[in-house]
Design a protein around this nucleic acid. Sequence first.
DNA 1: AAAAAAC
Length: 485
Amino acid sequence: MIKFSELGLSPKVLKAVEAAGYDTPTPIQAGAIPPALDGRDVLGIAQTGTGKTASFTLPMITKLARGRARARMPRSLVLAPTRELAAQVAENFDTYAEGSKLTKALLIGGVSFKEQEQLIDRGVDVLIATPGRLLDHFERGKLLLTGVQIMVVDEADRMLDMGFIPDIERIFELTPFTRQTLFFSATMAPEIERITNKFLSNPEKIEVERQNSTSDTITQVLVKHTPKRRDMSAKDKRAILRAIIERDGDECRNGIIFCNRKVEVDIVAKSMKKHGLDAAPIHGDLDQSQRMRTLDGFRDGTLRFLVASDVAARGLDIPNVSHVFNFDVPSHSEDYVHRIGRTGRAGKTGIAYTIAVPSDEKYLDGIERLIGKPIPEGENPWTPPGRKSDTPAAEEEERVPRKSRSRSRSRKASEETSEAAPAEAEAPREEARRDESRRDEPRRERGGRGRGRGLDRGPKVVGLGDHVPGFIEMSFEERREAERA
DNA sequence: AAAAAAC
């Protein structure tokens, strides 16, 4: 088997790699490092978690050891789609450029320009950036890209998804055509193909095993739930989430909970905290310093649960995540692979729960088609409370009596009416709305709640009311049939 | 349908 020492890296870099505890390169590293050191363009088709980052940082550090940066003219450039990924690449340079006197600057949005400008002014060997902030600096005339010898595009397919391709093209045009280009993408979409044909010259193509399959170190579990009413699914899912966490006990050392929407991330994080779980949200609407703090806390173990949007789905390297929860089934099936790939890393084992309601069925189909196997169904540890709960004030909505989830499929809507909604009936969407409206209000919780009830609740429920349309009541199988029809 | 990224 090939060793790092055989790839042609400088002794200093090798020492740093060794110090980090590595001696055998991953396939993408073994494939990309030698041609990169030779000055060739590299086209790497690889997912995150394949050791991709080191496959460009190590040869870059080796090559940049000679020469010195001039003011405002970085010698190399790394572009990443999200701020966190850019920061992670920067950390990677710190790890492996130890003792190499390499200067770098991280140009990402959400933080002040000033510090970034000062670094650029002094001259940097490596510039690591998200496209928006990079162009912003450029437009302010603070930055020249004509000295770029090596340019890296990381996660190009995600850049495509995020609409960054025009920016990337523009940045390419600002750098000298004599530059060396290292280009990484998980897939070769037509648009990606076009870009690589245009900007890479005779690249060495390295393709590592496509990871649309999921790692064996991850145990996948599907937890299905059919809510009594569709508008209760979010609340039910929060209860299911807590029940799983409680059941798994110490085995659930920590976890990432993925939601599809930012508001849901906030709601779930808040609800978990309310129930005494150590959780914090991360998504793109939170300010950057908070995002960093939260992520750092989760990395160093001071935060147990990270509630995240897909900003944290890809690429983030957090070792030792024991649990991943798909609070929402991702609608893009690739995201499923990325999300659960946050656990079971570096040979460790992990468990990935996916909580699904009947309307997720079509997405589940897509996911199972992609990963080529069904997600094994596990037991739903949560039983809807049938009596008054003994937790005061905690989640009052859950004290509502519920009928059993087993029911006959031919039940009529009229029968529902008598049974479903007693006087203290459910206020649908209540919690979400409260969280939303309170965001900017200093109002005390009690006051807000009381007001909400006065308006929205009453002996008679507004809107759907007691009537539940038949399709909402359908089970997974029934639903599947209905959709086929 | 949403998330991410520039002020």
